[in-house]
Simulated assay, not measured.
Amino acid sequence: MDLEPLKREAALRAVGLIESGMRVGLGTGSTAKYATEEIGRKVKAGELTGIVGVATSEASEALAREVGITVEALDPRPLDIAIDGADEIAPNLDLIKGLGGALLREKLTEIQARRLIIIADHSKIVAQIGEKAPLPIEIARFGFLSTIERLRQIVPGGRLRQPGAQPYVTDNGNYIYDAQLAVGGDIAALERQLKGTLGVVDTGLFLGMAERAFVASPDGVRELGR
């Protein structure tokens, strides 16, 4: 079954929470793009006014400008709402994000959102974090092999993201190490341990941040709350 129409419907449900005058975090990825496009449509149609977007990647900023959304840089002011996708969604709405490579800017933006709304398809639902997706960990380029050795003491499985001859480089000029997590255990403690590892910039664990999720499945779009 083609889930794209349902993913778009999930995005439209999320955009329905946006009101005129809001500052909105604009997510990155194949599902989040539907939300950005719908916000742009509503702005052009006059259904939403005074909207300011804060983009979570260079790609999402380019799309936002293309569809007519005013974009500003992230600053200390809070965002009213942020809408983004996820790579894993646990029952308590803890998330893994970052397979698209934008995890640092996503987290920096979305931690300032009063409401974080997730849109995804049903394949992203898991019973426990680490069940399906690797955990992206953004690391500094300088000394990255040493950083990876330190990470392997914590999460033995994983690899440097390298889609071609050279490693993948984030918008921030860093590399990404995709770690394979053991299912179970204290995920919050693991997050603290990873964040305390020299050379690690941030991880794709988004814990306790999402308010709700709209999830597309063959049966339609369902809403999950924390």
Rank of each mutant, 00 (worst) to 15 (best):
Q153S: 09
I96M: 11
P136S: 08
H122L: 00
R114Q: 14
T70I: 09
G68V: 02
R150K: 09
R115Y: 03
L103K: 10
I148W: 07
Q128C: 01
I139F: 11
G85W: 12
P78V: 05
G100M: 12
G130I: 03
G101W: 11
A102W: 10
E88T: 13
A120S: 14
G85A: 08
V71R: 06
R150Y: 10
P76Q: 07
H122Q: 06
E88C: 01
I69N: 02
I125D: 00
I118R: 02
L103T: 03
V67M: 14
A64N: 00
A82R: 01
I96K: 11
P134T: 13
P78G: 15
D121R: 01
K97G: 01
A113C: 06
A120M: 07
D121V: 03
G85N: 13
R115Q: 13
D75G: 15
P156A: 10
D80F: 08
V67R: 08
R152D: 02
V67K: 09
D75E: 14
L74N: 12
L151R: 05
G143I: 08
A82N: 04
A59D: 12
G98V: 05
I125K: 15
D94R: 05
S123D: 13
E138Y: 12
A64L: 13
R77Q: 14
T147K: 08
K97I: 07
L103P: 00
Q128T: 08
R114C: 02
S57W: 08
G130C: 07
S146W: 06
R77A: 10
L93Y: 01
A113Q: 07
L104V: 14
A59K: 15
P78K: 02
I81H: 00
E131R: 02
V71I: 15
L151D: 00
G101R: 01
A140C: 01
T109R: 00
S123R: 15
D80W: 04
G143S: 02
V126A: 02
I118V: 15
D121W: 02
L63K: 07
D84S: 03
K97H: 11
A102M: 04
L103E: 14
D75W: 05
